[in-house]
Design a protein around this nucleic acid. Structure first.
Length: 225
DNA sequence: GTGATGATCTTCT
DNA sequence: GAAGATCATCACG
């Protein structure tokens, strides 16, 4: 097959990302993140994500990496929408964001959890799980439920995957639409931040077992914009 | 099941 | 020099 990712749906184009992060974020739920690596194709359905607003927002988002303006690290967030922003956290992990809004406006969406769809063996290997493990619900949940877990499972690192154009058919990292329809999302406060802790900018697929974070986190059902 | 702790290093002040 | 969009592990109940 010329394009091994083609069976995973239609590639999302630039326009999908060229609006505010609090709109892009819930719309990303149910879409499929695909990594075509040298070791093989891996894919997972996005079931949890958080919006981070750019410094132009009123009020600005103090929890966003971009809130003090561009730095060498966050430069990609101020560029064209639909690009990957991968950063390292606590010296040992990576997290993956997607840049939103037009050039100069640094909104982004942090991908926090996936439901594994393809390449499960490879993901388990990347996560350091023993080979030949049965893929039961417990193992599935361990694979990609967390922003750094999903990067580990998919083999995503800052040196290799920062600043990629996710809308490029030739990109190893893409987001695809496969017809999965979500009626409602659950909106909750974001996880792991110390500023703007009450803003309801975390969106999850209600009831999905692969969602990360505390089980009893309260939120409200919202329509997908 | 929940809550605390340490690992470890890049980034910006 | 301090903080950080995390995770695995261990203690405790």
């Amino acid at each position: 097959m010329a394009n091994p990712a083609a069976g995973l749906g239609r590639l999302l184009g630039r326009a999908f990302y060229e609006t505010r992060p609090e709109v892009v974020c819930p719309r990303l739920l149910g879409k499929v993140l695909v990594h075509r690596s040298e070791a093989g194709v891996m894919a997972g359905r996005i079931v949890e994500a958080e919006a981070y607003l750019g410094p132009h927002n009123d009020p600005p988002d103090p929890a966003a990496h971009s809130h003090r303006g561009p730095t060498p690290r966050t430069l990609v967030l101020f560029g064209l929408a639909g690009h990957s922003y991968v950063y390292s956290i606590y010296g040992r992990y990576f997290c993956l964001n997607v840049s939103c809004e037009s050039e100069g406006l640094a909104g982004s969406v942090l991908l926090r959890a996936l439901e594994p769809v393809a390449g499960l063996e490879l993901m388990a290997q990347n996560r350091g799980l023993p080979a030949g493990l049965e893929m039961n619900d417990t193992v599935l949940r361990q694979l990609t439920s967390g922003p750094s877990r999903l990067c580990q499972a998919m083999g995503i690192t800052r040196p290799s995957h920062n600043g990629l154009d996710l809308t490029d058919p030739a990109s190893p990292l893409q987001i695809r639409e496969d017809g999965f329809v979500l009626e409602k999302a659950m909106a909750t406060p974001r996880i792991g931040i110390s500023e703007a802790v009450d803003w309801p900018l975390r969106f999850v697929v209600p009831g999905n077992p692969c969602v990360s974070g505390p089980k009893g986190l309260k939120g409200r059902l919202v329509a997908i914009p």
